[in-house]
Nucleic acid binder design. Structure first.
Lengths: 137, 137
DNA sequence: ATTTACCTGAGAGTGGCTCTAAACTATAAA
DNA sequence: TTTATAGTTTAGAGCCACTCTCAGGTAAAT
């Protein structure tokens, strides 16, 4: 059993966010002790994990709640849940590609500045000012 | 020269967002025509590109404005700009790793549901109910 | 001349946190 | 035994980055 603080550390999600998610109905199975303190079980960590995963690819909280609710409803919702996971995977893959593209731009920019620094900025005589030089690719 | 609508399409950023970014001072060089309509030059697209890039890895708008301002100040700010690009690259690489991890979880979940569907849900006799089965990895 | 298709800025609304405040234990030190 | 410290709780305010609505302007096409 974990307190919210322990979960926050273990799962790398802030306590605030965990409470916000809890209030949003993302962890319907978290028990409380006699002092009303949340006690996250090992199973509950699995829920934190999937919520974090869905969030990390930009799934809206309403859609996450839907997924949780489907889980609670039971077996009859397995096809829909499967669809959600597949769609999420596609989204994640697209995001990978997009990130890759942005990384290429950053690499280009990095080299651009390295050049400028290596040449001790002696391109600054260039009639194209640095603002124009800044333009990407 | 491009209207804001054309830029929106070409760069895959909404017109609203472009106006918001413009108001935030991200495109200080965009000219207007006689009717006060923005005319984005090819160079301006480069600025859209780098702003989009910085945003896509979660750089705050205040920090983006800082980067733009550094570019305007000129050569003396090249080392700081280089540092920003490097830090941004690191962030992007971390995000790639994180996405990779989340993709692994999604793959696990996908197989989990495929199994359930293939076996025609005949695991449902299992005393562990589907909620517990849902728990990740 | 009016419809259509753009554009403009101002400002309200939204989503998802993020933080503050006030109240309530529980343990530990003085 | 009082007090301090550290943890928890909720409600609710604040923040950021959009996102959208609206009222109004211009210009070409019918």
């Amino acid at each position: 059993m974990y307190t919210i603080k322990e979960v926050a550390e273990k799962m790398d999600v802030s306590e605030h966010t965990l409470r916000f998610w809890a209030k949003s109905g993302f962890f319907p199975f978290v028990k409380r002790d006699q002092n009303n303190i949340r006690q996250f079980s090992e199973d509950d960590l699995g829920w934190v994990k999937i919520v974090k995963c869905l969030r990390s690819v930009g799934t809206e909280n309403k859609a996450i709640k839907r997924y949780i609710d489907l889980c609670i409803i039971g077996d009859s919702t397995i096809p829909e849940r499967y669809g959600i996971i597949q769609a999420t995977k596609l989204k994640a893959e697209e995001q990978m590609k997009e990130l890759q593209k942005q990384l290429e731009l950053l690499n280009y920019k990095e080299k651009f500045y390295q050049n400028l620094i290596k040449n001790n900025l002696k391109d600054s005589w260039n009639p194209m000012n640095n603002i124009q030089l800044e333009k990407a690719l």
